[in-house]
Design a protein around this nucleic acid. Structure first.
Lengths: 204, 204
DNA sequence: ACGTTAATGACACCGGGTGTCAAATGGAAG
DNA sequence: CTTCCATTTGACACCCGGTGTCATTAACGT
């Protein structure tokens, strides 16, 4: 999983392509033929590499869609750490998730296509579960720390799972409504989660 | 071999086995060799049928683990309908989920092994996502009806997603702690969800 | 006996994924 | 320039899950 940017003073043959390059090629094919109809051979041939080499850049065909997801988790972890310690857990959570999903306007369309694949192609829906696990762990870690519990305890895990679910619902809604703004939808959904999806309980 | 329940007056060759029979055979192998190491050929051979026939009883190797899951969803739908209409959504949800997961003591061990596979084997973790979609739809349908919205709206979908996540966290906790009671864990988790995972907000 | 209906299993095929290994490539040391 | 070493590459063979096809088998009715 090493970055393919050939370090100047490194011995050995240089990589013939890179993850990002391969990703671009693959996405073009996915757009044209659909994810399922695109074989790894197709991608490899279009990229001018061997089938075997493809699997050295990505663990699986599914993984192509995820790009540099793992790296971004580190950023999310930082954002959590940057929240004021006194802030309620669910509020920090909302702020970070909303912020985490703010993409540059120029990238919006690309982000949309990515999520479209992940959320609508069954094979990717299934596989994404494995990727979400890392996301959840970041959330659980934060929730545990804030509530003074262990990461594996029921509450932090439940928070993480519920947060993921809420985010997914927001993503799907956003995909279904092209006019909506992702950040707004996420904000709404997480506000509802923090309220326990009940009536606005006012203490008067 | 196992006599398959064949309708008496039906023409045509009778099935040589049944889903439940096949499931038993498969689970024995899964227990012995693990899910991944057990091939469909192994199962077919152990059941005395052809490989092709296996795929007429189950759409995939993954599906073996799920048994008659779909049928049980209808039961859950009924339980939702049976809740008092004035009851808060999240309370009905908690009651139904807890009730839905009450299994006979004799079946507990079997249920445990089933969930162990689903939640711990990566291939099944991934595949289960597809099955969960139906579960979520049942919840979303109920939530929509109770809140006077469409099933596809953000809130019902978020509730369904969050509920699923909460249930999964509870399942995992239960698996990790053999002394715990599944119903109790679920009840706790859903109570927290209904509270928005916040401090006990008291109106004094 | 005959046609009908349904399940079976053999066979071939596709596609994702892996293990192995010789060959290609490039830097560094002689 | 040559030699050595590190690294990537791609060909090849293989496994396994899943599907389409089709002849065969086993039950039913007449």
């Amino acid at each position: 999983m090493g970055t393919a940017a050939s370090s100047p003073g490194r011995p050995g043959r240089r990589p013939s392509t890179s993850q990002v390059e391969l990703e671009k090629v693959a996405f073009r094919l996915f757009d044209r033929d659909g994810f399922d109809a695109t074989t790894v051979d197709d991608i490899a041939k279009a990229a001018g590499i061997g089938r075997r080499t493809f699997f050295r850049y990505f663990d699986s065909k599914n993984d192509v869609v995820w790009g540099a997801f793992t790296d971004q988790l580190e950023y999310m972890r930082e954002r959590f750490a940057a929240r004021p310690p006194a802030e309620p857990v669910m509020e920090s959570l909302r702020a970070v998730v909303v912020d985490f999903n703010r993409v540059a306007p120029a990238e919006t369309e690309r982000h949309r296509r990515r999520l479209e694949l992940i959320l609508r192609v069954p094979a990717l829906q299934a596989h994404s579960t494995l990727r979400y696990a890392d996301w959840r762990e970041v959330v659980a870690e934060f929730a545990a720390q804030r509530t003074g519990r262990q990461r594996a305890d029921l509450t932090p895990q439940a928070i993480a799972h519920a947060a993921l679910g809420t985010a997914l619902a927001a993503y799907e809604h956003w995909l279904g409504d092209p006019d909506s703004d992702l950040a707004t939808v996420l904000d709404t959904a997480f506000a509802e989660l923090a309220r326990g999806f009940g009536e606005e309980s006012r203490c008067s």
